[in-house]
Design a protein around this nucleic acid. Structure first.
Length: 979
RNA sequence: GGGCCUGUAGCUCAGCUGGUUAGAGCGCACCCCUGAUAAGGGUGAGGUCACAGGUUCGAAUCCUGUCAGGCCCA
C-alpha cells in the first residue's frame, strides 16, 4: 500500500472510531474504598437505613437473630471481624429475601477484666488508697462508677469500629448488660429459677485472701516465692488386715507382720491437715507395701526410692505390691483427730448432700501423679480445688475449719482453736514429730499464689456460694438439655455444623452445678438479705421486688439504698423487720447475665413474640460458654431452649495454623486491614473462608481477596460503561429502551445469559439460606469471570460498539446488561454493601448525595424472565471444542488474530438449527461461522486474504468499498449511514 | 491427660452415603488482544490425598494407631 493510501486509511480509521459506541462510565476502575466507604456510611445514616430497611419488609415475615454480647474491652480484633461480618451476612441476606430481620447489638459490660483494669488505673493514679479507706458500700460504688465509665467508653469505640465494617444493626439502641432494664430482666430469670427450686447455697473451695478477708479470682493472684514446710505423714490404717489382704498377703500367715500398716501422704500445707477427710490414689498406679526402718507403710512403688532416700532411711524392704484400685475404700485413722471433726458446728452448706460416715477412706482420683510426694494425696475438700471436686463426688462434707481471718474455729482440737493457719504449720509439724507420725520434713522455696493487692499469701478456703442445680432429681436441667439437643427429637436444636451437637452434649455430660456467685464489686448483685439470726432471705417474691427496683434505678441501688427502700415493692407477708436486714455482697457470674439475654433482650423487646430465637451465631468456644449458659436458665424458666439453630465458626489462626497471639507477634490489626483494603474487601475475605474449622489468616489472603474484588468490580464496570446511552424503563412501564426479556428469542445470547444468571442466582440464594457464604462467593466470582467476562461480554462487544446505537439487537443486549448489573448488585449486597450500592446507584444515575435509591432497600430478583433455548447448555459445552481447534491453529502460527479466522463446524445432531451464525461467530470472537452438515471435524478458515472492515475489523464476507471510500461490512455501512 | 474438630497441587479450598486417568480459584510459565487498557482473553505445568497399619474386588472417602494444629476442659 502506498503511503498516501495508508494515510487515507488511517484518517478513515479515526473517523470511524468516532462513530463507535465505545464504553463510558463514571464508575471508576479504582474503588478507593478507604475513602468512599465512609461516604456511603454517612449517606445510609442520613437515610436511617437500619430502620428503613426493617420497615421496608413486612412485620409478619420475621427472622429473629440474636447477637451474643462481646466483652466491652479493647479494640476489635480478627475474631470480631469474622463474627460480626458473618452475622451481618445473615441479617442482610434475610433482608434481601424480603424478611424483616431486626438486629440488636449487645455488650457484656460487667466483670473482672474491666474491674481489674480499673483497679490498676486507680492504683497508678494514686486514687486507690483513698477508695480503700471508704466503707464497703461506698468503696464498691467508687469502683463501679469508674468501671461504668470504662465500659461505656469501650462500647462507643466498638460501635465506631463495627459500623466501619459496614454492619447493619440498631447501633442507636444496643443492649448493655449494665442497663437497668437489662439488670431487672436478669433478676427475673433468677427469680424464675428460685421459684423452680433450682438455686441453692453451698460451700466451695476458692482462693481466699486472709489479709483482705475476701475471695479472689484467678486473675487477682500473683505468684511469688515463699518458704514452706514439706511434710511426709503416716496415717495408720484402721483395719490392718484388710490392707495386707489388698496386697495379697494373708494376715494369718506367720510371715505377715503383726503391726498396723500406714498410708504415707505428703503435703506442703500442714495447716490443712486438720481438715483432711480422705486420701486419694490413682487406680492405675502400682503401690508398694514397704518396711521402712521397722515401720510399715504404703507408697507408690515408683516413689519408694526417692522418698526413703529423702528421709535418710537405713533399711527399706518392699514386702508386696498391688494396684491402686485394690486400695479403694480402705479406712485409716487421722494422725491427731482420732474421732474425726465435730461437724455439728459447721454450716448447713458444708453438709449439703454429704455423708459424714464416709470420711477417712482411700478414694480414686486421676489427678494423682508420680511427680512429687508419695502417690497418696492428702485430701481436704474445704481447702483445695481438686480436693473439693473429689469431696463432692464422694459425698464428703466440704469441711472448712478456718474462718475469714485465717484462724481455726472450734471444730478442731483445742490446741489449734483460734490459731492463725501460718502459725499452725509449725505446731502441727511438731505434734506429728512427737507422735511419731512424721516420716520426714524439710523447708523449701516454691512459687505460691499471693493477693495481688496486699502481696500476702492466699489460702484455699471453702466459702458459701450460690449455685444453680443441674442435677436436681425431678426436673434436672441436664436431662432437659439432653432432650432439647437430642438428634432423634424432631424439634431439637439444629447445629451448624452438625458436629457441634456432639461437642455440646459432651460438655453437658460433665458440667457440674453452676456456681453463679462472685465476690467482686463490678457486677449485678445477688439480691440476698441476711437476718440478724443468720437466716437468708431470698425467694421468688423478694428477687422480683428487687428486679423492679433495679429497673427503676439500676443495680447501684444495692450499694446506695437500705433494705427497706430496696424491698419497697415486696409485700412482706410475714412482717420481717426490714431495717434489721443485712445485704449480701455477692454478685452474679457475668455468664449468668449474658446467659439471660434471651429474656432481657429478645422476650423483653418483642413482648415474647421473638422467643425462641431462630439463630445464635458465635465461635465454637461458646458451646460451653454462652450457648450452654443461655440454654440452662432458659430451660429452667421456660422449659425450652432459647434458640432453634446454633451456628458456630472457628478461630483465626496464622498462616501456619498456629494460634494468634500478641506475644508471638503473628496477629493482624483490624484497623490496619480496613485502612489498607477497605471493608468490602475484608468482608469478601470473610465470606470466602470456610468458617467451620480454623481460619488461616495472613495479609496475603486479603491481597488475594482484593484481586477477586477488582475482577468483580471490573466486570460490573464494563457493563455499566456500555449503558451510558441507555435508559431503563420504569418498573411496570415500557417508557425506556428495554426489550422485554420475555420477548427475547430463546436462541439469543441474552436469553442464554439471563437464564444462566437465574440458575446462578438460585444457587447463591440457597447457599445464603444455608449459611454457606463461601459457596456463594465462588458462584458469584465464577459467574462474573466465566459466564460474563470470558463468554457473554466478549461476545457482545462487537454489537455494543458497532451496531447502530438504537438497533434492536444492541438495545436487547443493553437490557440484559442492565438486568445483570442490577441482579448482581443485589446478590452482592450482603457481602459488599458499599460496592453493591455504588453499582446499583450508578446504574440508575443517582446523584452521589441523593439518599434515594439504595440496593439495601431492594430484594433479590426471582427470575429475569427470559426463556432460553434448551440446547444452550450443549452449545456452550461444544464451544470449547471450537475454541480448542482455533487455539491449535493459532499455536501453529497460522492465524494470530481470531478475527482473521472463520469456523466451519459439523453438527451431526442438528444442535445448532435455530441458532444465529452471527451470534455463534461472536461467541468465538471469529469473523464468520458456518455449519457444514457434511464436515467430520471443526475446520478453521484462514480469512486474512479477504477484505477487512475498517470499522469493526471483521472479515464477514460482506465487506466492500463504500461511497466514502472506506471498506465496510454491510452492518457497519448501515450504522454510519453510507451506501 | 480427656472431649470435639482439622491435615487433599506452592497457597486457599471442592470432593455426597467407598467405584472409571483426584477437581476449582489464586499464583506460576507461555501466548493473544491493545476499541474493558495500572484492564481483557487463551493454553499449560503442578498432587504416592500428613504418616503407618487394617477392612474391601476396590479407600482421599470406613476402622486403628502415630505425628502436627485448633477450641473447650482437666
Amino acid at each position: 500500500m502506498s503511503d498516501t493510501a495508508q494515510a487515507a486509511q488511517d484518517d478513515r480509521a479515526k473517523k470511524y472510531k468516532k462513530t463507535l459506541n465505545l464504553p463510558k462510565t463514571a464508575f471508576p476502575m479504582k474503588a478507593n474504598l478507604v475513602q468512599n466507604e465512609p461516604a456511603s456510611q454517612k449517606r445510609w445514616k442520613k437515610a436511617s437505613l437500619y430502620l428503613a430497611a426493617q420497615e421496608a419488609r413486612p412485620e409478619a415475615n420475621r427472622f429473629v437473630f440474636h447477637d451474643g454480647p462481646p466483652y466491652a474491652n479493647g479494640n476489635i480484633h480478627l475474631g470480631h471481624l469474622l463474627n460480626k461480618c458473618l452475622k451481618d451476612f445473615v441479617v442482610r441476606t434475610k433482608l434481601m429475601e424480603g424478611r424483616r430481620c431486626p438486629f440488636i447489638p449487645g455488650w457484656d459490660c460487667h466483670g473482672l477484666p474491666i474491674e481489674h483494669r480499673v483497679m490498676q488505673e486507680l492504683s497508678e493514679s494514686g486514687k486507690l488508697e483513698k477508695i480503700a479507706s471508704l466503707d464497703d458500700d461506698n468503696r464498691r460504688m467508687a469502683v463501679r462508677r469508674e468501671c461504668q465509665k470504662y465500659a461505656s467508653k469501650h462500647v462507643k469505640q466498638h460501635v465506631t469500629q463495627m459500623e466501619r465494617l459496614l454492619t447493619l444493626a440498631d447501633y442507636d439502641h444496643p443492649y448493655l448488660t449494665m442497663q437497668p432494664a437489662y439488670e431487672g430482666a436478669v433478676l427475673e430469670v433468677f427469680a424464675g429459677l428460685v421459684e423452680k427450686g433450682l438455686v441453692y447455697r453451698q460451700l466451695k473451695a476458692v482462693h481466699w485472701s486472709v489479709d483482705n478477708e475476701t475471695a479472689l479470682a484467678d486473675a487477682e493472684l500473683e505468684y511469688y516465692d515463699r518458704e514452706d514446710i514439706s511434710v511426709y505423714v503416716d496415717f495408720v490404717a484402721q483395719d490392718g488386715e484388710a490392707v495386707y489382704r489388698a496386697f495379697g498377703l494373708d494376715p494369718e500367715d506367720d510371715d505377715t507382720p503383726a503391726q498396723s500398716p500406714c498410708f504415707m501422704i505428703w503435703t506442703t500445707t500442714p495447716w490443712t491437715l486438720p481438715a483432711n477427710l480422705a486420701i486419694c490414689v490413682n487406680e492405675k498406679f502400682t503401690y508398694a507395701l514397704v518396711r521402712v526402718d521397722g515401720n510399715i507403710t504404703v507408697l507408690a512403688e515408683a516413689l519408694v526410692e526417692k522418698v526413703t532416700k529423702a528421709g535418710k532411711s537405713e533399711s527399706v524392704e518392699v514386702l508386696a505390691t498391688t494396684t491402686g484400685d485394690k486400695l479403694l475404700n480402705l479406712r485409716y485413722r487421722h494422725a491427731f483427730i482420732p474421732e474425726g471433726p465435730d461437724f455439728s458446728t459447721q454450716p448447713d452448706a458444708a453438709m449439703r448432700g454429704a455423708d459424714p460416715s464416709g470420711i477417712y477412706r482411700v478414694l480414686a482420683a486421676d489427678y494423682v501423679t508420680l511427680e512429687d510426694g508419695t502417690g497418696l494425696v492428702h485430701t481436704a475438700p474445704g481447702h483445695g480445688a481438686d480436693d473439693y471436686m473429689t469431696g463432692l463426688k464422694n459425698k464428703l462434707p466440704i469441711y472448712c475449719p478456718v474462718t475469714e481471718n485465717g484462724t481455726y474455729d472450734t471444730s478442731v482440737p483445742e490446741f489449734l482453736q483460734g490459731m492463725k493457719v501460718w502459725d499452725a504449720n509449725e505446731e502441727i509439724t511438731e505434734l506429728l514429730r512427737t507422735d511419731g507420725a512424721l516420716f520426714y520434713d524439710h523447708r523449701f522455696m516454691h512459687s505460691y499464689p499471693h493477693d495481688w493487692r496486699g502481696k500476702t499469701p492466699v489460702i484455699f478456703r471453702a466459702t458459701e456460694q450460690w449455685f444453680i442445680e443441674v442435677d436436681n432429681k425431678d426436673l434436672s436441667l441436664r436431662d432437659k438439655a439432653f432432650e432439647a439437643t437430642d438428634p432423634t427429637n424432631s424439634d431439637s436444636v439444629k447445629f451448624v455444623p452438625e458436629w457441634g451437637r456432639n461437642r455440646m452434649r459432651g460438655m453437658l455430660e460433665t458440667r457440674p452445678d453452676w456456681c453463679i456467685s462472685r465476690q467482686r464489686a463490678w457486677g449485678l448483685p445477688i439480691p440476698a438479705f441476711y437476718t440478724p439470726e443468720g437466716e437468708t432471705l431470698l425467694n421468688e417474691q423478694t428477687v422480683k421486688a428487687i428486679a423492679t427496683r433495679f429497673r427503676e434505678v439500676g443495680s447501684d441501688a444495692w450499694f446506695t439504698e437500705d433494705a427497706p427502700t430496696l424491698l419497697q415493692h415486696w409485700t412482706n407477708p410475714d412482717n420481717v423487720d426490714l431495717t434489721s436486714l443485712k445485704k449480701g455482697m455477692d454478685i452474679f457470674d457475668v455468664w449468668f447475665e449474658s446467659g439471660s439475654s434471651w429474656n432481657a433482650v429478645m422476650r423483653e423487646r418483642s413482648e415474647g413474640a421473638d422467643y425462641p430465637v431462630d439463630l445464635y451465631l458465635e465461635g465454637s468456644d461458646q458451646h460451653r460458654g454462652w450457648f450452654q449458659l443461655s440454654m440452662l436458665p432458659a430451660l429452667g424458666v421456660t422449659g425450652r431452649p432459647p434458640f432453634k439453630t446454633l451456628l458456630t465458626h472457628g478461630f483465626c489462626v496464622d498462616k501456619e495454623g498456629k494460634k494468634m497471639s500478641k506475644s508471638v507477634g503473628n496477629t493482624l490489626e483490624v484497623d490496619m486491614l480496613i485502612e489498607k483494603f477497605g471493608a468490602d474487601v475484608c468482608r469478601w475475605w470473610v465470606a470466602s473462608v470456610n468458617y467451620e474449622n480454623d481460619i488461616k489468616t495472613d495479609l496475603a489472603f486479603f491481597e488475594t481477596s482484593g484481586e477477586s474484588y477488582r475482577k468483580i468490580r471490573n466486570t460490573i464496570r464494563f457493563m455499566l460503561s456500555n449503558l451510558s446511552d441507555f435508559t431503563a424503563s420504569s418498573p411496570g412501564c415500557d417508557d425506556g429502551m428495554c426489550v422485554a426479556p420475555e420477548s427475547m428469542p430463546p436462541a439469543s445470547l441474552e436469553a442464554w445469559v439471563l437464564s444462566a444468571f437465574d440458575e446462578m442466582s438460585k444457587k447463591v440464594r440457597t447457599a445464603y439460606e444455608t449459611y454457606q457464604f463461601n459457596k456463594a462467593t465462588t458462584l458469584l466470582y465464577n459467574f462474573c469471570n466465566d459466564t460474563l467476562s470470558a463468554t457473554y461480554l466478549g461476545a457482545v462487544k462487537d454489537r455494543l460498539y458497532c451496531d447502530a446505537p438504537d438497533s434492536e439487537r444492541r438495545r436487547r443486549t443493553q437490557t440484559a446488561l442492565w438486568d445483570l448489573t442490577d441482579g448482581l448488585a443485589r446478590l452482592l449486597a450482603p457481602i459488599m454493601p458499599h460496592t453493591a450500592d455504588e453499582a446499583f446507584r450508578t446504574l440508575r444515575n443517582v446523584d452521589a448525595k441523593d439518599p434515594a435509591h439504595c440496593v439495601h432497600l431492594s430484594t433479590f430478583i426471582d427470575t429475569m424472565g427470559a426463556k432460553a433455548h434448551d440446547a444452550w447448555p450443549a452449545v456452550i459445552k461444544v464451544r470449547d471444542t471450537w475454541l480448542r481447534a482455533l487455539e491449535d491453529v493459532r499455536a501453529k502460527g497460522d492465524i494470530e488474530n481470531p478475527l482473521d479466522a472463520g469456523l466451519v463446524v459439523p453438527d451431526p445432531e442438528g444442535l445448532l438449527s435455530g441458532f444465529d451464525a452471527a451470534d455463534l461467530a461472536d461467541l468465538c470472537s471469529v469473523s464468520r461461522f458456518r455449519v457444514d452438515p457434511g464436515a467430520s471435524a471443526v475446520v478453521v478458515e484462514e480469512l486474512s486474504g479477504e477484505p477487512r472492515c475498517e470499522r469493526s475489523w471483521k472479515r464477514d464476507g460482506t465487506v466492500s468499498q463504500r461511497a466514502d471510500g472506506g471498506m465496510l461490512s454491510d452492518r457497519d455501512a448501515q450504522a454510519v449511514g453510507v451506501v
